[in-house]
């Protein structure tokens, strides 16, 4: 039974490349108006999943429901989707405007409607003043923006963004982030794939973590992070703490455990990793106990778990491996 509040439902999707399972029993859904992130390292199966969602690749098994209808690759169902592929899928020998008009006309836009939509989208991605330049003259960030713009020409209901910020400067990245948030506020549902956890954390309402073609976790960002444990207070001391001093610190309320290690930066210093239930509330009592114990405090930071830690705890490897 398809849930009408979901714009996309993917059930038990499988795809093999020869013997290798590229996508293995993938199941997830995207709610209307949601930004859903697919996070995973390169080769996790994100692009293959997107290719099946847009009908370029045929799944080995499984089903895809788009707007409550079984996706069959028909022109109508394809028109619901917009895609900004990982590659810069634009023509360098065409101008920005010509690129948009071409991709718009593939979705049967024409005449005044095509003109209007082209200008709207150019303005949305901030390329109106460079619209008549050949795109080979654009910067990397401008090309990325145009790549995103081409996927929006036909006013899709679900936008698939495949690693949309690869190889661009921070300014263009922010421009894309703003654009994605604005489009989402206007009601566009978005599937955002990336291997940059910071992007997914910052943008997505819910995140699916993929590894080796499988979905290893799927939830909101706070819920996922909570599975990786609590925050840790990292303290750098000017000297090595004695066992007795560490025992004193352990006795503080809320402290779960303390790891102690020597460090040579600066020389003779040591590092304490204090695991606590509520690290923020522990800070003042920890600092006063350190002072009363005669230990010299060099620095103190609160390290909160990230999606990177979640991925590490789920798969035993780093996202950037």
């Amino acid at each position: 039974m398809v849930n009408p509040s979901n714009i996309l439902e993917v059930n038990d999707l499988c795809k093999n490349y020869k013997e290798r399972k590229a996508v293995d029993n993938l199941t997830f859904h995207i709610k209307r108006g949601e930004i859903f992130g697919l996070l995973g390292p390169n080769g996790a199966g994100k692009t293959t999943t997107l290719s099946m969602l847009v009908g370029i690749l045929k799944p080995l098994s499984g089903t895809i429901y788009l707007e409550g209808e079984r996706f069959n690759g028909s022109p109508q169902s394809r028109s619901i989707l917009g895609i900004a592929p990982q590659e810069l899928a634009i023509y360098p020998k065409l101008t920005g405007r010509e690129n948009l008009r071409f991709f718009g006309s593939l979705y049967r836009l024409s005449g005044a409607e095509l003109d209007r939509r082209t200008e709207e989208i150019l303005s949305l991605v901030g390329l109106s003043d460079r619209a008549d330049n050949l795109t080979e003259e654009y910067s990397g960030g401008m090309k990325r923006r145009l790549n995103l713009a081409a996927g929006l020409m036909h006013n899709p209901k679900l936008l698939l963004l495949d690693e949309p910020t690869v190889g661009i400067d921070p300014q263009s990245r922010n421009h894309i982030f703003e654009g994605v948030r604005r489009l989402n506020k206007e009601g566009l549902s978005i599937l955002y794939t990336s291997h940059y956890m910071e992007e997914v954390e910052a943008l997505c309402h819910r995140v699916g973590i993929m590894d080796g073609g499988r979905l290893v976790a799927c939830d909101t960002v706070p819920n996922l992070i909570s599975t990786a444990g609590n925050a840790v207070v990292v303290v750098t001391l000017g000297e090595e703490a004695s066992d007795a001093q560490i025992q004193e610190l352990r006795s503080l309320p809320g402290v779960v455990d303390i790891e102690c290690m020597r460090t040579d930066e600066p020389i003779g210093s040591s590092l304490l990793r204090v695991h606590a239930l509520e690290p923020d509330r522990l800070l003042s009592s920890l600092v006063s106990r350190l002072n009363s114990s005669g230990l010299s405090l060099l620095s103190l930071t609160v390290q909160r778990p990230t999606l990177e830690d979640v991925f590490l705890s789920l798969t035993g490897k780093s996202l950037r491996d």
Partner: peptide, 14 residues
């Protein structure tokens, strides 16, 4: 194929 425009075109109603 290399530039990704083939994927984009084939994901359209074309």
């Amino acid at each position: 194929r290399k530039e990704g425009t083939l994927r984009r075109m084939l994901s359209s109603p074309l």
